[in-house]
């Protein structure tokens, strides 16, 4: 009940944010670049043709009216046609979105799993070599942009030591019918274990490139939270009761220590949708981000606004999910959220 009204409140707030985002995107993609009709037809098109297209695209109306038309179309899933692929933008988005989600999904799993594991490891071995090694990797990891890491992976695993595939989602000899859009699950549904394994090997490098920097950072936060909680009274009480250290560690210490890393992880996972723009480009991953970046390079304004809007919706939803998970773990937030500030 309480968590229900918390979710409702967050959803209502995010509707306002998304309306604001649509205005921002409208400004970026429609107003800043100048006349869309002239851009679509090129500088040498005759004036009458441009005028006709302006009428057709309803660009002769006032800006608020244009925005209203754009918004109602967008709500019906109509972002106009892409200049590059000559198809409706929404079709392109449907085709590419799941590949990006697959990448982010597995990167999130990688990040949560290894950040927790390394955090526990560092906290248990405080100031010993494992802890110092993780600290060092955290310093270096945050200094390597994801695209540089991706380039290194391509060089190492593509040329000097080719044990992992570096391009696309699946080797061309496999053909898997599309059910969920996630290659691994599709292959498993088709009963094709070889294809599933192949899809998995294709995932490894992009996922690691996407998640690695954040993983070490969160391991550090996890370590700090655990060491902080270790000095709290409830741990001393449990030790006093003679509860074995392993049980204290995993049953009582882990949950309160997850709160701080969880919210940072959530932000990082949501931000992956942005970083994926470069990683997908390098690994030639046929996802929405690669589509978006190509749209940006060709100034394909309809595709830009469609992609950015969809990513904004995904980002906002991801943030809500994270807030809900954090609220489930931390009762203080949950209760404060209901009684109001």
């Amino acid at each position: 009940m309480r968590i229900g009204s918390f979710i409702l409140r967050r959803l209502l707030l995010s509707i306002f944010v998304l309306i604001g985002l649509s205005i921002l995107i409208f400004i970026i993609a429609r107003i800043v670049p100048g006349d869309p009709a002239r851009l679509a037809l090129g500088p040498r098109a005759p004036v009458e043709v441009v005028e006709r297209l302006r009428k057709e695209l309803q660009l002769d109306k006032s800006l608020p009216v244009q925005y209203w038309i754009w918004l109602t179309n967008a709500l019906h899933g109509d972002f106009g046609k892409s200049l590059v692929s000559k198809r409706p933008v929404i079709e392109d988005i449907k085709e590419y979105l799941l590949a990006t989600l697959e990448l982010v999904f597995f990167a999130a799993i990688f990040m949560v799993f290894f950040a927790t594991l390394l955090g526990i490891l560092a906290a248990r071995n405080k100031d010993r070599w494992a802890d110092n090694l993780i600290r060092m990797f955290a310093y270096i990891g945050v200094s390597i942009p994801a695209f540089v890491l991706a380039i290194f992976f391509v060089l190492i695993f593509g040329y000097t030591w080719p044990i992992l595939p570096v391009l696309s989602r699946l080797s061309p000899q496999f053909d898997v019918p599309r059910v969920t859009g996630f290659m691994i699950f599709d292959s498993l549904f088709a009963g094709n274990l070889n294809a599933a394994w192949n899809a998995f090997t294709h995932l490894i490098l992009p996922v690691v490139a996407l998640a690695l920097a954040g993983t070490f950072q969160e391991a550090r936060i996890m370590r700090a939270a655990m060491l902080d909680n270790l000095t709290k009274d409830f741990i001393a009480a449990e030790k006093g009761y003679g509860i074995p250290e392993r049980i204290i560690m995993f049953k009582y210490l882990l949950k309160p220590s997850m709160i701080a890393p969880l919210s940072v992880m959530g932000m990082d996972i949501a931000a992956m949708m942005g970083i994926a723009f470069l990683v997908e480009l390098i690994f030639n991953w046929p996802g929405l981000s690669r589509y978006g970046i190509n749209a940006m390079l060709y100034k394909d304004l309809n595709a830009i606004s469609g992609t950015v809007m969809i990513i904004g919706v995904g980002f906002t939803l991801a943030n809500i999910v994270v807030d809900v998970i954090v609220a489930l773990v931390d009762p203080r937030i949950r209760l404060a959220g209901v009684s109001g500030e």
């Binding site: 995010s14 944010v17 998304l18 604001g20 985002l21 995107i25 970026i28 993609a29 800043v32 670049p33 949501a270 931000a271 992956m272 949708m273 942005g274 970083i275 723009f277 470069l278 978006g292 970046i293 749209a295 940006m296 390079l297 100034k299 304004l301 830009i304 950015v308 990513i311 904004g312 980002f315 906002t316």
Partner: peptide
């Protein structure tokens, strides 16, 4: 703050 920072920066840079 409702879109990933890199996406915002890329799209502003792209239309200019």
């Amino acid at each position: 703050l409702s879109i990933p920072p890199l996406v915002l920066a890329l799209s502003v840079a792209a239309v200019l």
